[in-house]
Design a binder for these strands. Structure first.
Lengths: 153, 153
DNA sequence: GCCCCAATATTGGTTGTGCCAATATAGTAC
DNA sequence: GTACTATATTGGCACAACCAATATTGGGGC
């Protein structure tokens, strides 16, 4: 359980004011909240399962390789994740008849229900994470982050 | 070399607009820049070495345990890091005569020079990371991040 | 002063994650 | 048809954060 470590410390001034450090700490906080919330949900799933289910819900059935490209998950890790999701009947896998080397992954009705349940879990994390900011500031923060990531002026 | 992975992808909408996801991606970007910059510097040091040297420069000689509390580095990892820093003569360690179980760690003149060199490396990373934002937005971003981390309204 | 507990440094191991290599299989391009 | 590419899977590696066990040493309670 990777809780936000190094929480109440005195960090050198050189370090603690740098955006790269702040972003790293924010990530640790966010990840800690996320993992805790998923654990507390009792679903036995983790954030990357949510990414997979989200991609399937949005783009429909896909091969494992396509799914990996959509979620940034390595093919080898994808195999393991899908075995878990299939065992819990949140997805099904069948060989594509037209392309027999492909596994077509499909989300089940139960998987869609789980996705919606996880939506609430994740929304709760956003609320906690951004609680110190008012609505306007939350929008600003999100917009600035997006700009940094898309590298757009 | 943990470069920012999952860079040019199509991420599910459910995922890609959430602050927790954006923060995670920003962290990956930042970390990639940081590690690359340290590698390119040819110093053979990594970001956590910088944290250690920074703490020593700011608060003076400390025991390893105190240093660990100041930098969020586990005592066992601290030992390994200090062995490296001592081998390169950026710090010295000697047993505290008054408390023989403590190692007093001191930064050397050479270590202080290295610290200043690394300052430039890190400043370059901040410039790259925040390049999409203008000066005002950079200040806003840093302030919002700080508020989130200190949990202050 | 003495005894028990806490602090320190160290070694070694565990866990989780992201990545890569090798392989077997199957489709595609020419 | 041959050579190349894509796919799924297994296994493993590297790295970081963290934890456990140990030996040593001080400090506090009595």
């Amino acid at each position: 359980m990777p809780l936000p470590s190094h929480a109440n410390d005195r960090t050198p001034d050189r370090v603690k004011k740098r955006p790269s450090w702040l972003v790293g700490r924010a990530h640790a906080t966010s990840l800690g909240l996320l993992v805790s919330a998923f654990e507390a949900s009792g679903t036995g799933l983790r954030p990357f399962h949510y990414r997979i289910l989200s991609a399937l819900e949005q783009w429909g059935a896909e091969s494992q390789a396509a799914l990996g490209r959509d979620t940034g998950i390595d093919p080898s890790d994808m195999t393991a994740a899908l075995v878990e999701l299939e065992a819990r009947e949140f997805v099904t896998r069948r060989v594509d008849p037209a392309h027999k080397r492909r596994n077509i992954v499909t989300i089940t009705a139960s998987g869609e229900r789980m996705l919606r349940e996880l939506d609430h879990v994740i929304e709760g994390v956003q609320l906690t994470l951004l609680a110190p900011l008012d609505a306007d500031e939350q929008r600003q923060f999100t917009e600035l982050l997006t700009r940094i990531l898309t590298r757009e002026k």
